[in-house]
């Protein structure tokens, strides 16, 4: 039964032609949202919004690694057993292991450039933790203090950052 209401209609938006010679190039825009889970690391990201830095530790007595992991992992890669959470005592003071000054960043960057990315050694932690320096100029061996974005959190790793310890009077004794 043929009827006009059954005609298939084009409902899209015509593609923009970016160039027509020598080959036709069209624009193909899109906007997508992924649902990303923090899974078993959720306590870590919740901790940041509360001003806490949480790491994990393997408590299996037979394991070869008993230092803290930061970034944390829910399970130990050495013995494959679940790890336990531990909060780092405040103030969290680390040492700059290395750094870089980001001047040109890709799309989606959420920090104003240029800024310093810092990789930080922490006592008792077997890994080196990447973050950014809110102000100042880093050098290898410099002491830095962890700060948290507890107000208006981003709910991402950007909820923590470092500041030079020398500038922080509260942390000086």
């Amino acid at each position: 039964m043929a009827s006009k209401s059954k005609i298939t209609k084009y409902t899209g938006k015509p593609a923009k032609v970016l160039q027509s010679e020598p080959a036709i190039v069209i624009e193909w825009p899109r906007s997508l949202a992924h649902r990303h889970t923090y899974g078993k690391l959720s306590p870590f990201f919740k901790g940041l919004t509360e001003g806490k830095l949480l790491a994990t530790r393997c408590i299996n007595p037979e394991c070869v690694e008993h230092r803290l992991w930061l970034p944390p992992r829910a399970d130990c890669p050495d013995c494959n057993q679940p790890m336990t959470w531990e909060e780092l005592p405040q103030p969290v003071i680390g040492t700059v292991h290395t750094y870089a000054r980001v001047e040109y960043a890709g799309a989606g960057i959420e920090l104003t450039t240029p800024y310093f990315q810092v990789d930080v050694e922490l006592p008792g932690v077997c890994t080196i933790f990447k973050g950014y320096l809110q102000y100042g100029t880093p050098e290898i061996g410099m002491k830095v203090k962890a700060c948290f974005r507890t107000e208006d959190p981003t709910n991402t790793i950007l909820d923590m950052y470092w500041i030079p310890l020398a500038d922080d009077k509260a942390a000086r004794f």
């Binding site: 990303h36 923090y38 690391l41 970034p71 870089a100 980001v102 040109y104 960043a105 890709g106 799309a107 989606g108 960057i109 959420e110 920090l111 990315q117 990447k130 973050g131 950014y132 991402t156 790793i157 950007l158």
Partner: peptide, 14 residues
């Protein structure tokens, strides 16, 4: 690592 690194640079040189 998209949880701990990607947002800190968005460029591989970094």
């Amino acid at each position: 690592c998209k949880d701990f690194e990607t947002r800190l640079s968005r460029i591989y040189a970094a």
